[in-house]
Design a protein around this nucleic acid. Sequence first.
DNA 1: TGTGGCTGCCC
DNA 2: ATTCTGC
DNA 3: GCAGAATGGGCAGCCACA
Length: 552
Amino acid sequence: MGSFLAFAQICQKAAGIGSSLEKVEILAGYLRDLQEADLGIAATFLIGEAIPGQELGVGPSILYDALARAMGCTPGQVADLMRSTGDVGLVAAAAAEKKRPLSLAAFAGSDGLELAEVQGRFMAIARASGRGSQEARVKNLHYLFSEASPLEAQFIARLAMEDMRIGVGEGLARDAIARAFDLDPEEVERGYNLTSNLELVAKRAREGRLAELGVAINRPVKMMLAQIGENIPAALAQGAVAVEWKYDGARVQIHKDGPAIRVFSRRLEDVTASLPEIVQVVRERVWAREAILDGEVVATGGDGRPMPFQDILRRFRRKYDVDRMARSVPLKLNLFDILYLDGEDLLNRTLQERRRLLTKAADQGILADQVVCADQAAVQKIYDEALAAGHEGLMLKNPSSPYAPGKRGKNWLKIKPVMESLDLVVTGARWGEGKRASQLGSFRLGCRDVQTGELLDVGWVATGLSEDLLAELTGILRDLIVKESGMEVEVAPQVVFEVGYEEIQRSPSYSSGYALRFPRLIAVRDDKSPEEADSLERISEIFRIQRGRAGS
DNA sequence: TGTGGCTGCCC
DNA sequence: ATTCTGC
DNA sequence: GCAGAATGGGCAGCCACA
């Protein structure tokens, strides 16, 4: 029988090992000796998937509730512990230390939790819906904590958050499965990328039947991803590239089985019901009987320019008012790849070959434009056109590369412009978690309102900081704290950050009315005072002219 | 019945 | 999404 | 160069609660 304690001990061990190879070795040894059912559970648990492909509906709020109940304290006290430890796992371990036993079994010293029992509780948590469902989730978590030893509780809490933080992700889990059953890691990786189901992959690996996992209609394939490219000349160094616009939209993978059409999102969610016009256009303009197609949908306004990304978000996952919203935010399909055609897996064909087949399989009008080109000036011209049209930049792809599911490699490069940065005042901060425990991990930003002299919120920044800088900033800002509540602090406005971003968005939640898309710290401006920070006027002016709007 | 907080997922 | 870090 | 970790804005749907 697979004990959850043994799993937790392996997690603890893995978390303490730096070397990936050593980590894989230990995980492999553990997985190898499990029975089939436990192997499936343990494999998915390792990557923080409580139940393959299902939502738990548990976040910090419900988890802290359950922990508070287990410890017999208030959620506020749990939040205090979070601030000092920055780790739900450690808080849960503490809860298990001082728990009040729920059941007689716990008094008597229970037999310990089984992997299957823990997953069963998570299933009950995932199934809960409707009135009283949040209470049901809390109760099931509370039960698990009441039965758990401190070490078990640590990883139950991390599982509930679907975030194990043991330095094991999909990559190492795959390698561990391969090592456990003496298989080629590439084969395991292929099986996983074609099914996204580590439980299934682990079981098939054990049986030596990985080869049975192939490309099939209605089984979404992990999407191939792009790396950031340096610039156009560097991308052209290896020769000609396939050039496409990088659309500011949402990725879709479309499965067509005759008249039956399904649309999957980047995370392979079925979004068919939200996108009726995409289904319709595929029905009318894809000639292939069976196909798996890859593309990007963009919202297009009356002027033919792309609508803000926020509008696309209003379409995805929508269940109600779908038709009305389809009229106000119409989506256009831009197909750029084909992975499967009439019974044939095309993954190992070259991009050039796939493009040729795509051209035959669908109407030109729903394909993303593509040219194969080795000339720097010509690529630059397309780049300028993409930006002038309001899109993000270019995709430059290696014409002779296969479709590599789930890979983010140099065969697909994205080229985007660097926006001029903003100098913004740090007005607050938030205590971090994990690696950033007991440090300030994200920073609230303000711009100047010239009329009133006030600082207006433009959001937060939390990336672009090295560990040294993080520590230094914590030291500086700690002395500037004027107010503290929960995980957040307010600081006297003295520090100025130079902040980079991709785009300025209208914001419904920040007082300036604007927010930055993908904010990152470029530098701390020791040389600038808050009075010299950028103004709301400057932000709204950049907003007005960005992305080739106005003045071009 | 309306609303605000929470969660998951787009980027 | 972006960015930093250790292997 | 890769994989993992820590973090951003903003949307819909759902649930709790007033």
